[in-house]
Design a protein around this nucleic acid. Structure first.
Length: 434
RNA sequence: GGGGGUGUAGUGUAGCGGCCUAACACGCUGCCCUGUCAAGGCAGAGAGCGCGGGUUCAAAUCCCGUCAUCCCCGCCA
């Protein structure tokens, strides 16, 4: 076999030629002495045809890895108008037992419980519908990087093993760090701020974060990928939401171009990201919910409130996205910048998309004294934060930023019912393998 | 952490006190078929109903415990 491999997506450019294909057996259908093998590689599917070779045909099992040489023949009877007449076929690796999942039929037909899919994750990822999720996710992350890079942001990586678990808000995973206890980072928050102050002004990070919450819901993971950015020298927190608006538009337009097959598979109508995503103050949102839906909001929006508010935004404001702003100080971390007009509120926001919170962000406190005060007011000791506070003593610019949950964004875009579906190997309350 | 639900062949489900020595579909095995594409036909194999205990003449079906899992809430991305 001296031929170079042809990717399946390129097969139709080789009509009449002998080509070498490699891939997995997606389906085998034997009709008398004719055997149709749909071969699958990372680029797609093609029907191949084996004639009269019964001994070989009998060994073909679904999901076997094989390579073959054949001629590309146009034939209107073939699924895509072309098929490959097999001349030589070699099974590289045959399954030792029938796979526990069927990956060659639509999920809607076979049904596959999430638990089953996750228990056999590497196999379920071979399923075209399941695998497509990660194509979309990868392109979203690519576009996140590409857009921010174009806006002068520097990609950074910050420690995932950290000393103090005192940012608050969530439980942390302790790890044994030689003779001390360290923690897995719940976010890159402190470090991205520190790097803004370190002179880079604009930084972003794509990396894992860890939350030890014992929640067990369709929207939580204990390890997820956080898409963070932080920017300096801002005048107003709206610069952050405006940039996110442009970022999301770029990301979604990129998906439209890069993932047509996946969008078709999931029957997704890509949302238009409006020029301005509506901003509602939390108090305004609460008033709307009370007035329109007779829904009382106590403090923060609950999941039902988020859903209703998104319904409202879609109907009345023509947007699938809505920023909820001006959260009370008590609901936000100690570094959240108080609002100038009402110091009980903060210049912070969440972004809701199709009924789910996908972003939290805001302006941060940049004044050293105010930050120390904020730390103390939470009953924490500024001494424990010296590593963080240092740069605030030496000309920290006004700044802010946000974090997007990569799995949540992907899941919402594709209308997945559980974030776990947007994680290759999800870590949840009970799952540590695969 | 609180509340609710579910556990039946490899997979997805039905059965919810006796008709169940457990059913259907897909997958699997064998045979037939030269145009299949959720292929078709024929013939098979495969679970004793999560686990432990109890009630009953009788339990997959009811009760208790236990484990697993799912959903909702709190909290969050």
């Amino acid at each position: 076999m001296g031929l170079r491999r042809t990717w399946i997506s390129d097969v139709r450019r080789h009509i009449g030629e002998r080509i070498l294909l490699k891939g997995w057996v997606h389906t085998v259908r034997a009709i008398g002495k004719l055997v149709f093998i749909v071969l699958r590689d990372r680029t797609g599917f093609v029907q191949t045809k084996l004639k009269g070779q019964k001994e070989l045909a009998i060994q073909l099992q679904e999901e076997a890895a094989l390579k073959l040489i054949g001629t590309v023949i146009p034939d209107p009877r073939a699924p895509d108008g072309v098929e490959v007449d097999i001349e030589e076929l070699k099974i590289l690796s045959a399954p030792v037992e029938p796979p526990p999942l069927q990956i060659n039929r639509p999920l809607g037909v076979i049904g596959m419980r999430l638990e089953t899919a996750l228990n056999h994750r590497t196999l379920s990822l071979r399923h075209p519908e399941i695998g497509s999720v990660f194509k979309v996710r990868a392109e979203l992350i690519w576009a996140f990087r590409e857009f921010l890079r174009s806006q002068g942001f520097l990609e950074v990586q910050t420690p995932k093993i950290v000393a103090a678990g005192t940012e608050g808000g969530t439980a942390l995973f302790p790890v044994q760090y030689f003779e001390r206890t360290a923690y897995l980072a719940q976010s890159p928050q402190f470090y991205k701020q520190m790097l803004v102050g370190a002179g880079y002004e604009r930084v972003y990070e794509v990396g894992p974060v860890y939350r030890a919450e014992e929640h067990n819901t369709a929207r939580h993971l204990n390890e997820y990928i956080s898409l963070d950015y932080e920017m300096g020298f801002i005048d107003d927190f709206r610069e952050i939401t405006q940039l996110e608006t442009e970022l999301l538009r770029f990301m979604f337009e990129h998906i439209q171009r890069a993932c047509p097959k996946e969008l078709e598979l999931y029957k997704i109508e890509m949302p238009k990201v409006p020029k301005e995503i509506p901003h509602l103050k939390l108090s305004e949102a609460a008033a709307i919910l009370k007035e329109r839906y007779n829904k009382l909001v106590d403090g923060d929006l609950d999941p039902e409130g988020e859903k209703l508010l998104c319904e409202y935004a879609k109907k009345e404001l023509g947007s699938e996205f809505v920023f909820v702003t001006h959260y009370p100080k008590a609901k936000r971390p100690m570094y959240a910048m108080p609002n100038e007009e009402d110091p009980a509120l903060t210049n912070s926001f969440d972004l809701l998309y199709k009924g789910l919170e996908i972003t939290t962000g805001g302006q941060r406190i940049h004044q050293y004294d105010m930050l120390v005060e904020g730390i103390e007011s939470r009953g924490l000791n500024p001494k424990d934060f010296e590593f963080y506070l240092e740069i605030f003593k030496y000309g920290m610019p006004p700044h802010g930023g946000l974090a997007i949950g990569a799995e949540r964004l992907t899941a919402q875009l594709l209308n997945l019912s559980n974030v776990r579906e947007a994680s290759f190997f999800p870590r949840d309350r009970t799952r540590l393998v695969p």
